[in-house]
Design a protein around this nucleic acid. Structure first.
Ligand SMILES: [Mn+2]
Ligand SMILES: [Mn+2]
Ligand SMILES: [Zn+2]
Ligand SMILES: [Zn+2]
Lengths: 144, 144
DNA sequence: ATTTAGTTTAGAACAATTATAAATTAGAAA
DNA sequence: TTTCTAATTTATAATTGTTCTAAACTAAAT
């Protein structure tokens, strides 16, 4: 009740959601930051529970994240594996992915120049281009 | 026992696997084709069971697919969602992904030209660059 | 033929996600 | 304020995809 919650209240309202205590906790973790936050649901849930010092229901986290995603406040990232990753950076950009550590890092749009793209298949339209630059530690001679 | 199974036997042996009936069934579905096959495990299992007209254990499909992936005969594709997609095309290439139909299509390496890539983060090395061009039907005004 | 290590299998276990339905709460209305 | 209602939270169940297990089976070496 101290800090400025207005922007979160608006963000929630514009997503068709009431500004509850739980949702405001989620907003603080997601949007009160300068750098991009890439996360899985369980990582987010842990951060929320640390910051508010009380539990939050897993269903609430899922529901709110999905609402934000559907309203363009979060993006989902294409990655191998069976966990879903989300991104607070909703501008058009690309990623480094260190598959050894699981760490994602933004690559600004202008840092990759794509000079040629194929035409979309007949009757289809290109919606977006995702680029994942997979990286790993220099020294080790790891497979795949 | 009629068709030429030698190449599959070799592929299995070189993956450290004995050529069993089940594994040869899997090989026929995976490798006896001209065009790329993009699949999930359950799609593959259904095709195998249609082609051999008897059931195959899910564990055998998983095990064999993983062995082939680890030995470079299959690739895993980065995609949103919680199902894992595999690819019989192990050459370097990119993809169209129609997220309305779930359909994946190859884009040849030379059809996309990347003219600028950022340096890998300090101490890390670029292992590969995945590009997914997400497409959807022209007409509909679908969200996301 | 015998032996043995590798394989298949059904089912259990596990992990991520989604669904359910009862208790709680936000916020409008009185 | 208090009352009322629909929205929300929650614990838990259900569902889905994947991995593990251990007993039955089989390839292939001896
Ligand atoms: Mn995936
Ligand atoms: Mn994913
Ligand atoms: Zn990002
Ligand atoms: Zn492909």
């Amino acid at each position: 009740m101290i800090s400025d919650l207005k922007p979160y209240v608006e963000r929630l309202r514009s997503s068709g959601l009431r500004p509850t205590k739980q949702r405001l906790s989620i907003c603080k973790v997601l949007f009160d930051r300068k750098a991009t936050f890439h996360f899985t649901i369980d990582q987010l849930k842990k951060k929320i529970e640390k910051s508010r010092k009380s539990k939050i229901s897993l269903a609430t986290v899922y529901n709110t994240v999905h609402a934000f995603k559907n309203n363009g406040y979060l993006k989902e990232i294409s990655l191998r594996g069976n966990k879903t990753f989300f991104d607070t950076n909703v501008t058009s950009h690309y990623h480094f992915y260190d598959y050894e550590t699981g760490e994602l890092m933004d690559i600004k749009n202008e840092e990759i120049i794509v000079n040629k793209l194929p035409l979309a298949p007949k009757g289809k339209k290109i919606k977006d281009v995702e680029i994942i630059v997979r990286v790993a530690n220099n020294n080790h001679n790891q497979k795949k």
